[in-house]
Design a protein around this nucleic acid. Structure first.
Lengths: 168, 168
DNA sequence: CGGATTTATTTTCCACGTAAACAATTTTTA
DNA sequence: TAAAAATTGTTTACGTGGAAAATAAATCCG
């Protein structure tokens, strides 16, 4: 690990007006690091999601995965992983677990026996319908601290950054 | 796990104009779930960060932690964890590892021998100075897909949501 | 047409991060 | 003033998620 022995022993704080804090702790330029702030926001959203409303019987990640399979019956496992940013190794285990729970069925297509095509079972469909409002209905709690207009813009920028496309 | 046997076996897609997709996969209302979109953005930012520029000799998380200690010499370990959303169990191991690497020193204050106060060593200071531009200088790559104005607004909303406070 | 290469998923091992329990110390309470 | 409660960080066990290697199948190329 390269070390610069000539560096001063006291950290020179970056030149900026006043202070920038998180939970009373000075973070300076870290507040301008997109990765850092996104991580804090994601952890906060996760925390708020679980602290409000009726509990889900499965994790939010599992719900999202089932939801996406429901929206795309027959979707290939690799394609699902690409869309949801879940690596193949984990997706394999996630799908196996949800298959064991009876929510998902796997079909190996005749035209490509390497692949796995996924669909929801009736039980899986029922589950995501049953908990739809539980999952989607926490906007007020999730968006604490932002006005409705700000939340709208926030989601628009998040979607744009994420590469979510919408078309009529 | 509650199941509604009367639910239809085909997922009724939500009523919305057109389609909403991610990587060519239909996600529908998932694009309105703050936690979900934040997770996607965080993974994307992380991916872009590592794919661009000179590699860091430590992880981004370790750099952020060292940076924050540098901005707050003598900070209590618990307070650091609260600010960075890192649980005590993990912070203990993280700090131990960075102490072993020579970047951090731990001092148990006389007035509260339960606590641990953290500061950077000269080696730690040198490290975060040495890689400052490597860590902070990837705005262009990180913010791919957003205009400068949008990035500014994006960061403003992220900071607001995260509870970052700024004062003169 | 057979071997090489690529693709898709699975398996194994491991790191990260945390829940829960624990230990030491401080503060509170009766 | 001593016991109870709370605080601070540590340790242990475990779940999540992924890197790397393996396996099976499809495609490509000479």
């Amino acid at each position: 690990m390269p070390q610069d022995a000539t560096a001063p022993t006291v950290l020179e704080r970056p030149v900026q007006a006043g202070s920038t804090q998180l939970s009373g702790v000075e973070i300076g330029d870290l507040s301008g690091s997109l990765g850092f702030v996104l991580r804090i926001c994601q952890l906060l959203a996760f925390d708020r999601f679980y602290r409000s409303g009726e509990p889900l019987p499965i994790s939010a990640g599992e719900y999202s995965t089932l939801w996406t399979i429901g929206m795309n019956p027959g979707i290939r496992q690799g394609q699902l992983g690409t869309a949801l940013f879940i690596k193949p190794a984990h997706m394999t285990k996630l799908i196996r677990r949800m298959e064991d729970q009876g929510f998902v069925q796997r079909v190996v297509p005749e035209d490509d026996r390497r692949a796995v095509c996924l669909s929801l079972t009736p039980v899986g469909e029922a589950l995501i319908q049953r908990f739809r409002d539980t999952f989607f209905g926490r906007r007020a709690a999730e968006a604490e601290g932002l006005s409705p207009k700000e939340l709208e813009e926030f989601l628009r920028l998040l979607r744009k950054y994420a590469g979510v496309t919408t078309r009529a």
